[in-house]
Nucleic acid binder design. Structure first.
Length: 468
RNA sequence: GGGGGUGUAGUGUAGCGGCCUAACACGCUGCCCUGUCAAGGCAGAGACCGCGGGUUCAAAUCCCGUCAUCCCCGCCA
């Protein structure tokens, strides 16, 4: 870790010369400003009391008190207060959100926040704002009240706001843990094409793309390809990648491009092997978040959901029955968003779980590759996972016998020859298999109690937004 | 694809027929302040009330259209 930081610091030092023509020199206007000094990360300042350090970052707040000037400096690791003394200070030119570097001595002072501050000896403005920023970075969201639309219009700036940008530290850790756990279980990370030949899977609208002389589509999921790679001998594969849905939905839980966390595993006996892996996976991911992101969780007043030893499995038919009994609510065929919320309330109160697998969806509501149930062939060995009232996963066992799959395709009025690329490996010994997909943004949003999924996407693509 | 709501300074809101020459907060500009930390004090700038049309003696306010945007449903992760 320390090596990596040294590497970054060294790299930055090199880059600095490239930008030299744009650097505004100010007090004390010293061109060879201690080039030999290594940058100290703000989070490590408290380990350097009494030492001279080089800090770089943004001016988070600026508070002039007479001839004193307090700067709260922000870098990717945290905040520290710096103090400029009167006549030495380059008074006017420092602005909030300017990128600066300072050299100063770390001192203990009970009057400073957390008892630590830096007495500035040299300060250089690297780049100063040329306009008034449309979003205030240094005040709580509850005070400045930025609308989501404004935050998204000025996305790179709004991400600087700790309450906005921290979402993505959490999301990154969730994805890291997803990879780490599946790797430990023998899964291979794969990448499948996002430009595909045809919208064969069904179930959702696709974005056409001009692919030389013919029309191709953006992949709605890696479904076919991950199954094919299971059959290709890797047995267990996972993928973290974007998927595209051309649905005209415009809600707080839908995006037209999102990150899908997929896995697929071969030689299973039962679809419950898939849900068992997901249970362990989620436990690992959430325990990791609890350790890695305590600050971020605090910021969102978020509590990591406890993943029980066994997440309840409820058949769709039973779920509908429960809703009818408890809430006198009629659901036909599937749960609507309200039904999902009510079912989660039920499992939390009665079964002590914030998660619930809803299983055995009817064949008519599932894609052609869904494995029919042995006991009731009108149902499938498939499931959704609900978390805190929202569907975050769909998965299930897939059809592996070649003939059954061909029949299933035909029964949907589709032409098996359109699926030759997919079907080939099913001819040569496809093991029983299944898998699932987790929506990364939905998972993040549910964990952090975000009200809109767009908050969990760096640059969301929705019905009307393709910029920034 | 269907339905509902909202557009007022840089940001977030108030005003919803005449008291609007449009208010408040934060930000911004200037001055003051050597311990601030959602800093404070004083002074100031900034909006033809999304756009177009109509009703009226009078429109930010009511009506129609249009554009933008938010949300709900279907579908889904």
């Amino acid at each position: 870790m320390a090596d990596l930081q040294r590497l970054y610091a060294a790299e930055y030092e090199n880059c600095k010369y490239l930008f030299a023509p744009y650097i505004q020199f100010s007090y004390p206007c010293q061109r060879d400003l201690n080039m030999s000094m290594k940058r100290t990360w703000i989070s490590e300042v408290k380990g350097h009391i009494g030492e001279k350090v080089l800090l770089k970052g943004w001016v988070h707040t600026l508070r002039p008190i007479g001839k004193l000037k307090f700067i709260v400096l922000r870098d990717r690791t945290g905040f520290v207060q710096a103090k400029l003394k009167g006549e030495k200070a380059p008074a006017a030119e420092i602005k909030e959100e300017a990128a600066i570097q300072i050299i100063g001595t770390v001192v203990e002072d009970p009057r400073a926040p957390e008892g630590i501050e830096v007495d500035v000896e040299e300060l250089r403005i690297l780049s100063s704002p040329v306009e008034i920023p449309p979003i205030q970075i240094n005040r709580p969201l509850a005070v400045i009240g930025v609308r989501l639309e404004t935050a998204l219009d000025h996305r790179t700036l709004s991400l600087r706001h700790p309450e906005i940008g921290s979402v993505f530290r959490v999301r990154a850790e969730l994805i890291w843990a997803f990879r780490e756990y599946l790797r430990s279980q023998g899964f291979l990370e794969v990448q499948t094409p996002k430009i595909v030949a045809a919208g064969t899977e069904g179930g959702t609208a696709l974005f056409p793309v001009q692919y030389f002389e013919r029309t191709a589509y953006l992949a709605q999921s890696p479904q076919f390809y991950k199954q094919m790679l299971v059959g290709a001998g890797y047995e267990r594969v996972f993928e973290v990648g974007p998927v595209y849905r051309a649905e005209q939905h415009n809600t707080v839980r839908h995006l037209n491009e999102y990150i899908s966390l997929d896995y697929e595993m071969g030689f299973i006996d039962d679809f419950r092997e898939i849900t068992q892996v997901e249970t362990e996976l989620l436990r690992f991911m959430f325990e990791h978040i609890g350790r890695a992101c305590p600050k971020e969780l605090g910021l969102y007043k978020a509590e990591v959901p406890r993943v029980p030893k066994e997440i309840p499995h409820i058949t769709l038919a039973d779920a509908i029955e429960i809703l009818k009994k408890r809430h006198n609510k009629q659901c036909e065929g599937d749960l609507d968003p309200e039904g999902e919320k009510l079912l989660c309330e039920y499992t939390k109160e009665e079964l002590g779980s914030e998660f619930v697998f809803v299983t055995h969806y009817p064949r008519a509501t599932r894609p052609m590759y869904a494995m029919p149930n042995e006991e009731d062939p009108t149902l499938t060995n498939t499931f959704d996972l609900l978390c805190r009232g929202l569907e975050i996963t769909t998965g299930g066992q897939r059809i592996h016998p070649y003939n059954m799959l061909v029949e299933s395709i035909q029964s949907r009025g589709l032409n098996p020859s359109d699926f030759d690329f997919y079907l080939e490996i099913f001819k040569y010994g496809m093991p029983p298999h299944g898998g699932l997909a987790i929506g990364a943004e939905r998972l993040t949003a549910q964990l952090l109690n975000l009200t809109n999924i767009r908050e969990a996407s760096f640059f969301p693509r929705d019905r009307t937004r393709i910029v920034p």
